[in-house]
Structures are given as C-alpha cells and as structure tokens.
Design a protein around this nucleic acid. Structure first.
Lengths: 140, 140
DNA sequence: TCATATAGTTACTTTTTGTAACTTACTCTT
DNA sequence: AAGAGTAAGTTACAAAAAGTAACTATATGA
C-alpha cells in the first residue's frame, strides 16, 4: 500500500531526474541502457582487461591471461567477445602458425579507460580505510 | 617458457608501476587490496544501492528494495551487510513495532558516490554508442 | 481472532563461474 | 618420420553465487 512518504519520494525522484537526467538505473536492466551497459563494462574481469590494455597498446591472449591474474581461458575468451561487441576493444588475428591474435583498445575503449583509471586511483587511495573498517566490523 | 617480449613487458610494468604507483591489480584479489575492495564496491547491486542512497539521505529496507529494481530480499540484505562492513553505509535500527531500520551513506560512502556518479554519467552519455556497436556486431 | 506491517531468513532451484582436459594445424626436434 | 611444442581458444563437468518464494517475530488495529 502506498504511503505519503512513497509519493513524496516518487516526486523527489522525478525532480532529480529532471535535474540530473541520468537516473535511469531504477529500471530493470533490459529497460535501462545504463544498467545494461554498466553490467558489462564494470564487471570485475572486464575492468582488469581494459586496464591492462590501457597500459599496453596491444596484448595477445596468453599475455593478457598472465596480467589478468586468475582469469580462466573460458572467461577471458567470453569477456573479450562481449568487450569487442560493445566496442571497447578490437581483435586482430594473423593467420600465422601458431595463430597470432592481438587485442587492443578502440578509441572508445581509450575514453573509457580514463574514467576507469580515476575510479581505480580512488580505490588505491581508499582501500586501506575499507580494510580497516572491515577489520573493526569483524570484531563486533 | 619466457620470451624476450615477456621480459620487456615485465620491465615496462615495473617502470609504469614506478610512474603511476597504482597497478597493484595484477595480483590475485587476496593480495591486492584494490581488486578486493573494488569487487565489493563496484558490484552491480552495490552500486545501485549506493547511488540511491546518494539521492535519498536515508532509506529503509523496503524502500531501497523498490528503488533497486529487481533485487531480492536475500541479496539486498547481503549487500547491505558488506557495504556496512566496508564502511560505505550505516545501519540504524529503531525498536518500534514493526521494527524500523534506516540505511544511509557514511561520509566515506558520500565520497565514493561522487566517483560513482561520474562513471554513471559517462555511461549515460555513452550507452547509445555501445548499443549501436552491439547491434552492428550482431549482424556480422 | 484474524489480517497487516517491517526487516529480514531459509530451503530449494536456476544460472553463472571456475577447473582442467582437449582441439587444430603447422613447425621444430630427434 | 614420429613426437613434442605452441597459440588461441573450446568443452564437459563441478562448485559457487544468485534468484524464488515461502516463512518468522512481534505488536497493533479491525
């Protein structure tokens, strides 16, 4: 049953939406591009892949696998496919023997990696606080 | 077997590490605070919870559940616990009947939500490109 | 006495991930 | 000429995470 508070929140949301224009994430993913796109791009493995490709202009499958420590062939290959489909990375295969496949960021991927680096820097700076908090919480 | 290219990359990484000082994410999560902390904070559900708490200073369990469209009681309750443990949010329970529990961002959570909003804005601005790319890729 | 409300929890099912062995095709070694 | 090595994956199976829906406690109001 809707309460007065509910309606107030709904109004506030509408207002905020007008102000900011970017709070679509209250919708289910299939109706909300932001949720949809974000679920691919900020997946744990995807971010690591993209960050490494931000450092090295081109990396091959097995090299990437070494840098993205702990990823399996299966997941790496899956993620590379969706990241390619979404336009972040580029795949170039050279029919040598054995085959050589090079992955690199697209221009679009480059622009994303910059955002990602900011977040990573925040994480780097703040992870000690989180770890300390976690420890304190564990004692309660 | 290590190749020359391998060693070059390792050297380059070391160099980059000195320059940037924040590429710890090549380690496994249990040795890399950044990967560890990020896996909690940029989880899909966590980000939505934090974003909503960025809009509303305090939200109760069921209200949060309505905003974070599609989340289940189980996962919401799990995420709230770890977000509290990690110091992003605060839980305040009032022993009324029925019980009232209020969630809100800590100061630390506030600082994170700002970073998160930047990322969300980028997503909002760029999701059309991603969707277009995805469509084009689907036709290949 | 029975329905209502909040903030969860629990048992069970389904989906997603992880593991490790296998594949293909050619070249290099013995 | 047989066998090992190599890059970039794929596949079948096991384990973990997530989703589903019913259930709990406690007091209030009908």
């Amino acid at each position: 049953m809707e309460t007065v508070a509910d309606n107030q929140n709904v109004k506030t949301v509408k207002k905020l939406e007008k102000m900011f224009g970017h709070i679509d994430y209250r919708h289910p993913p299939e109706l909300c591009p932001v949720r949809d796109v974000m679920s691919v791009a900020s997946d744990q493995w995807s971010t690591l892949i993209i960050l490494w490709l931000g450092y090295f202009p081109v990396l091959r499958f097995n090299k990437l696998k070494k840098f993205v420590y702990g990823i399996s062939n299966k997941v790496l290959s899956q993620r590379l496919k969706v990241l390619e489909a979404d336009g972040y990375i580029e795949r170039n295969a050279y029919p040598e023997v054995p085959i050589r496949v090079e992955y690199s960021l697209t221009e679009f991927g480059q622009s994303y990696v910059e955002k990602l680096l900011e977040l990573t820097e925040w994480m780097q700076a703040n992870s000690p606080k989180v770890l300390a908090n976690r420890e304190k919480y564990g004692l309660l």
